[in-house]
């Protein structure tokens, strides 16, 4: 009973303790995986280009900065300075409206003529120039389209998330229902088993009570001058193992010598015979012994 109460009180503690224990180990695992980097990978090879002299970067850059509105139009011929050629490269991917064939041609040309060293410089600059080059209407359209697409995308994502959530909820509910059903079945079974066990226990208890009584009776000495069959009743507190903690006379028989003899007999009968399974021990803690002489 004490255990039951302790269980009730510490049920919450158990859950908390379990989660904390798992947290500790999760932390340890994270620490080991991310904190300890024993991997000795060789450094990836670094490529370096050596230039004897820097190419003239500043001049072509300034040239491009001067906005020329014809940029989106197909560039006529392969132009020698690398920067001018690369400029269309940015135009090509951006306008969706532009005919694809032109862009393709431009791209191919660019690939033929591009110089590696100049690419980064060009990439940074064109976005500023390209927008004015496009007719504002088109820009607006493109922007609107982009916005619309984004909104649609967001909506779709939201929907998907909702769906997932709903599904997860459903699953959880189904799980809970299944668990409840299983628990109910288990409880029913347990109840039936408990009833059966109860009957068996009672039989066992009676048997052992009889054994205790007979053992005590054997230890009562023959008393002279005893008339009839005096009945003495005792409350006996037994500890596991069969030792007697205390013996108390609850109803004297009327013959003090007989009462004393029975009490001595009880003490002499230690250890009292007890059922082997400890669950029944609780029924034998406080036993009420009614002792008649042999």
């Amino acid at each position: 009973m004490i255990n039951d109460m302790a269980d009730l009180a510490s049920g919450k503690d158990k859950i908390v303790a379990r989660t904390l224990a798992i947290c500790v180990h999760g932390l340890l695992l994270l620490l080991l995986i991310f904190g300890v980097s024993w991997t000795n990978k060789p450094q990836a090879p670094l490529m370096a280009n050596l230039w004897s002299s820097l190419p003239p970067l500043a001049e072509p850059a300034s040239e491009v900065l001067i906005p020329d509105p014809e940029v989106p139009a197909p560039a006529p011929a392969p132009v020698p300075p690398p920067v001018k050629v690369t400029a269309p490269k940015v135009v090509a991917p951006k306008p969706v409206v532009a005919p694809p064939t032109q862009a393709d041609i431009l791209l191919k040309k660019k690939e033929k003529d591009a110089h590696v060293g100049h690419k980064p410089v060009v990439k940074k600059e064109p976005p500023i120039k390209v927008e004015p080059a496009l007719p504002p209407k088109k820009v607006n359209e493109a922007l609107e389209r982009a916005q619309r697409q984004e909104v649609e995308k967001k909506q779709a994502e939201q929907k998907e998330a909702d769906l997932k959530q709903a599904q997860a909820d459903k699953e959880a509910q189904a799980k809970a229902a299944a668990q409840a059903a299983v628990q109910a079945a288990a409880q029913a079974k347990a109840a039936a088993a408990a009833a059966q066990a109860q009957a068996a226990d009672n039989k066992l208890i009676n048997e052992y009570m009889e054994r205790i009584r007979s053992k005590v009776r054997q230890n009562i000495p023959e008393l002279a001058g005893l008339q009839g069959s005096p009945v003495a009743e005792f409350d006996v507190v037994v500890i596991p193992g069969g030792d007697v903690l205390s013996v108390r006379l609850t109803r004297p028989s009327g013959y003090p010598s007989y009462d004393a003899a029975v009490e001595r007999a009880i003490m002499k009968s230690q250890p009292l015979p007890l059922p082997p399974n400890p669950e029944l021990m609780s029924r034998f803690r406080d036993i009420h012994l009614v002792v008649r002489p042999k």
Partner: peptide, 9 residues
Amino acid sequence: VFSWYYIFL
């Protein structure tokens, strides 16, 4: 894991 569980308990 078990010893930590009992420690907290």
